[in-house]
Amino acid sequence: MVHHLEHHGLAGLSLSPLAEAVGTSKRMLLYYFGSRENLLAQALAASRPDAEAMFGTVHDAAGLHSAARALWEAITVGRQRGLVRMLLQLLSLATTQPEPYGALAADAVEVMVGPIAAAYVRLGHAERDARVRATLLVSGLRGLCQDRLVTGDTDRIDAAAHRLIEDATSPAG
């Protein structure tokens, strides 16, 4: 299912072709997932990086830096790289169609920002500053992923991501 969504996109998603691709019926998809939005939520949850696991054990600046680098690798060359396409589509759809996509998009952002912000708090940052820094890291890396997908300039984008990570995870940064 996730593979189908990664390759066919979210805009104009019809459950009938998805059901056919995964060997079931539209009725069964709705039975199991309840709604198209819940199906999308479950697909995103099943394929996104586990930020809680990646950042949950961070207790120093080196660990934060390492976790951020691991996140970048996961979303660009790792198993979750296909998720980035779905996530970017979801965020775009949420700006023009907030009713069906807004809450799902907000959750997709928070599930990344929350655990990273908690890591910053453990490093001594105030809650607001921690959320600002986590937002900078998450949104910056996501924007760089979009640039990478659009331009294909992996060398430039990887260098920019490493600079962002250095700046966002340095004790003085």
Rank of each mutant, 00 (worst) to 15 (best):
P115R: 05
V109H: 01
T169I: 09
W72I: 05
R142Y: 00
L29Q: 12
A160K: 07
R163M: 14
Y120S: 04
L13Q: 06
E73C: 08
V111S: 08
M112P: 09
E127K: 03
G56R: 10
R142L: 01
Q146G: 10
I116A: 05
M1Y: 14
Y31V: 11
L90P: 01
L164A: 11
A117H: 00
H8E: 04
V150S: 07
Q146E: 06
G143I: 02
A11I: 03
L93V: 05
R36V: 04
G143M: 07
G34E: 09
T24Y: 01
A11Y: 11
A45E: 07
E20Y: 04
Q80S: 06
L149E: 00
P17Q: 07
A168P: 02
R27F: 02
Y32F: 04
S66C: 13
K26T: 00
M86E: 09
M54S: 12
V58M: 06
N38R: 12
A21I: 10
S14A: 15
M86P: 03
L30H: 04
M86G: 01
V138M: 03
V121C: 04
A130Q: 07
D153V: 01
G114E: 15
T151S: 03
R133H: 14
S16K: 15
A160S: 15
S35M: 08
I157G: 00
G23F: 05
L29E: 01
P171H: 08
D107G: 11
L15K: 08
L83G: 04
L40V: 04
D147A: 15
E166A: 11
V58H: 01
E52D: 12
L29F: 01
L123N: 08
H65E: 06
A46Q: 04
L64W: 06
T95K: 08
G124K: 09
H162K: 14
V77N: 13
P49F: 03
A41Q: 12
H59S: 09
A108E: 06
A159L: 15
L137I: 08
H7R: 11
E73Y: 10
G34T: 05
Q97N: 03
F33L: 02
R79Q: 03
R79V: 05
Y120F: 13
Y32D: 13
G63K: 04
S66V: 09
D147S: 14
H162L: 15
L5D: 10
G152E: 09
A94D: 11
A159I: 10
A103C: 01
R69W: 10
H3L: 05
